[in-house]
Computed example of a mutant assay.
Amino acid sequence: MKEDNISRLSICPRCGKPYYEPPALSRLDNETLICPDCGTREALDSIGVSPEEQDSIIQTIHRCLRSE
């Protein structure tokens, strides 16, 4: 049986925003599924990247994904 490639809308429990991409596993509890942006923020935060730099990195990721 062929599986349809239908995106599923989810709401991130961390930021409250909707997302369609595959979720990330939160580093905080290793159980909660969060949006890719929050997953990226948690990863960057774990290595000491400032919130301002996190915003810049996430904007760059979004720009690159839009251009594909």
Rank of each mutant, 00 (worst) to 15 (best):
R41T: 04
S10E: 09
I47C: 10
G16L: 12
N5L: 04
Y19N: 07
T40Y: 11
C64P: 00
P13W: 08
K2W: 13
C38R: 11
C15H: 12
Q59A: 07
E53D: 02
A24Q: 11
E68F: 09
P51E: 03
L25S: 09
L9M: 15
L65E: 07
G39M: 01
G39Q: 04
I47V: 14
N30D: 15
I61F: 06
D55C: 06
I11M: 13
C64I: 03
K17R: 08
E31I: 05
E52G: 01
C12T: 11
V49K: 03
Y20L: 10
I6Q: 14
G48D: 09
I57W: 00
T32F: 01
S56R: 15
E31R: 10
G48H: 05
P36V: 04
P18Y: 13
C64G: 07
R27W: 00
N30H: 15
R14T: 07
E31Q: 07
S26K: 13
G39E: 01
I58A: 02
L44P: 00
C38Q: 04
L65H: 10
E53F: 08
I61S: 02
L28W: 09
I57H: 00
E52Y: 03
A24K: 03
E3A: 14
A24E: 04
P36S: 12
L65Q: 13
T32M: 05
A43S: 09
E52L: 05
Q54W: 07
T60V: 04
E53K: 14
C12N: 06
E21T: 11
E31H: 09
M1P: 13
Y20E: 08
Q59W: 00
E68I: 13
P22S: 12
P22R: 04
G16A: 11
S50V: 02
D4C: 00
L9Q: 13
G16V: 08
C35G: 12
P51V: 07
Y20D: 09
